[in-house]
Amino acid sequence: MADHKFLIHEKNDSVGVAIININEGDIAKGIFLTDNGSIEITAAASIPLGHKIALHPIKAGEFVIEYGEKIGRAFKDIAKGDLVHTHNLKSIHWIKK
């Protein structure tokens, strides 16, 4: 079994994707798909399999980056290691006028 717990699509991404359930407080290793480089982050929340972990602090109003692209905008401050999902991230599209 691999020792990494999350994967990161691109170098400038602000989130990684958990490949296994990560518990709050775990020191989790992440691998970049681009070059197999790795980082370690302490999980600030439980991150279930397939969910996203913040790689650095993200302020409310800032774009969240995955695949090297904008996947939406944070509407709350997000701490490093925190879960990034519908409670703090919203699409830039599909907004009623």
């Binding site: 994707v17 958990a18 279930p48 399999l49 397939g50 969910h51 996203k52 995955e66 695949y67 692209e69 904008k70 996947i71 939406g72 990034v84 999902h85 519908t86 991230l89 919203k90 699409s91 830039i92 599209h93 599909w94 907004i95 009623k96 006028k97």
Partner: peptide, 26 residues
């Protein structure tokens, strides 16, 4: 006058960790 929030992404997508249509599309 509608949006696709609630349909794109679907409940299943969100349960699986997908948060926004952009993320799903990428």
């Amino acid at each position: 006058g509608e949006d696709l929030l609630g349909s794109q992404p679907t409940e299943g997508n969100i349960a699986g960790g997908l948060t926004t249509i952009e993320e799903k599309a990428l």
